[in-house]
Structures are given as structure tokens and as C-alpha cells.
Amino acid sequence: MHTLWKGAISFGLVNVPIKMFAATEEKDIHMKYIHKECGSSLSYVKKCNNCEREVPWEEIAKGYEYEPGHYVIFEKEELERLNTEATKEIKILDFVDLTDIDPIYFQKTYYLSPGDTGSNAYNLLLESLRQTGKIGIATVTLRSKSTLAAIRIVDGCIAMETIFYPDEIRSVKQVPNLPENVQVNDKELTMAKMLIDQLSGPFEPEKYTDEYRAALMEAIEQKIAGKEVKAAPEVQRTNVIDLMSALQASLDAVKPKAEGKGGKTAGKGRGRGKVKETVS
């Protein structure tokens, strides 16, 4: 693994030297923009519409548009001076229960290993978190951006989850057409709960695959081999129009699977991958 960041975790007066590694890796299939006429990839050019020329990096600053067409300009050094917390420190402020944090707050996960020194302090924090069942809420600066983070244990490793600040979470009150008084049919509710029960089981992430990415890779290989790309078969849908019939048909569909496994069954995940379009 490539070391992304070196620093320390601090809680109270305890300092834990660590190295940071990305815990996840992107599996998206990246594509470039291609000029169909000649087959060449397109380059990204920063062009000034006023001067009508390409602008080199040394002539570029950052600006905030406070009203249409009007900006306040900041040099890189000015922004760095504003970030007083830009230290190589993950500062734990509080310890809380993991269940206290709604998943909507989580952003990205990083693994933290002991630094070249201080393995005893690392082990102490790891075991303390394990035995208390707590996670640490910390502040950290990554890539010039201050963020909140949760420090927890993942398979015997201290991990850091960056999390959104509260004012970065949109209120559900902004979502249109939410029901004010939820009312459902009792029979439909009973059948829906039965269907959930039939489809319930332990979380087994290894059985979920990104079907779109697999299909795209197959199409890429077919094109490389000069073959015609085969379209995916259409998903067969039943013509169920009312809710009770849909629930009953769903229960009937999962019962054979449940009986074959001697009980409950878990639904198969259908991942939806993303294709990122980039330019060179």
C-alpha cells in the first residue's frame, strides 16, 4: 500500500504516531473523450474567454464569485495561512458509540498503521477502543481541507472515517412530496414484513458484484477482438398492477429459494457501477 499521509493521533496528552493508507480502491472503468473523426484523445485546456488564449498554471488563482461576474481572488499562500489547523495531527475531541452516528455522515475510510516509532501507544489506543466499544470523534486536515473524522477499529486495525459536518447534511425537509401522515393497509404491511423476513440474512459483501462493470469489461474485450458487442438480455417483468398481487408474487418467488436453503434467504445485490469520463 502507498502511504498517503504521516502524522499522529492525539487524545488528551497521548500522542500516537501513524501512517495513513486508503482503505478502499476505485474500480470504475475510466474512459477518455475521443475525437471521432481521427480517433485521438482530447486534451483539457484551461482557456481564458476574455483573453482568448490558454492560461498556464502560474497565472491561475482561486476566486469566490460573490455576485455574478464579480470575484474576490485568493493566492495559494493566503488560503494556507487561513488554515490554522493544518497540522499533521488527528485530534480526538470526544469518544462516542458508533450507533450514535447516522451512516449519512460517513465519507471515506482510511487505514492507520503504527508510525516508525510509538507502536506501544498505537496498541494501547487500539485495545482501549476495542474493550470500551467506543469510537473517537476527531478533527483532521487533509489536502488543505479541515474535516471531522471517526476513529474506530476494523479487523484489528485503527481506521479513520472522514465524516461530514452537520451543516453539510441537507435537511429532509427539502425533499418534496414526503408523506406527513403515514397510513398503510394492515394486510399489505403484514405481507411486506413477511417478504422482508424471507429476504433477510447476514451481510455477506462478497456475494455482491458490480454487474454493469463486468458487462462493460466484456464489451471492451469484444471490441478489442473485433467482435460485435452483445446487448444484455432484457429483464423480464411480471405484469402485476396492484400492490397485494405484487407482494404475493414476490413471496411466491422467494419461497422456493428459502425452502431450498432450509430457511431464510438473502437477496442478491445488483451493483450499479459508474463509468467516469476523463480527458487527458
Score class of each variant (00 low, 15 high):
149 A>M: 06
139 T>K: 15
110 Y>G: 05
103 P>I: 07
149 A>V: 11
149 A>I: 04
123 N>W: 02
113 S>Q: 11
135 I>N: 00
134 K>D: 05
107 Q>V: 13
148 L>I: 04
136 G>N: 12
107 Q>T: 04
116 D>S: 13
115 G>A: 07
154 V>T: 12
158 I>N: 06
106 F>S: 00
151 I>H: 07
117 T>V: 14
150 A>Q: 12
125 L>W: 06
136 G>H: 11
158 I>K: 11
148 L>F: 13
128 S>E: 08
158 I>S: 04
112 L>T: 06
137 I>F: 08
137 I>P: 11
119 S>P: 07
156 G>M: 10
123 N>P: 05
106 F>T: 00
130 R>P: 02
107 Q>S: 14
120 N>R: 15
144 S>P: 00
121 A>V: 08
127 E>P: 00
102 D>I: 09
152 R>V: 07
102 D>N: 15
146 S>F: 01
121 A>E: 14
103 P>T: 01
122 Y>K: 06
156 G>P: 11
127 E>H: 12
158 I>R: 03
104 I>N: 09
107 Q>G: 01
98 L>K: 13
99 T>M: 12
102 D>P: 10
133 G>F: 08
157 C>G: 02
144 S>F: 06
132 T>L: 09
98 L>W: 12
157 C>P: 00
121 A>D: 12
144 S>L: 08
112 L>G: 06
157 C>T: 14
118 G>H: 06
134 K>V: 11
123 N>Q: 13
150 A>M: 15
151 I>E: 05
114 P>G: 04
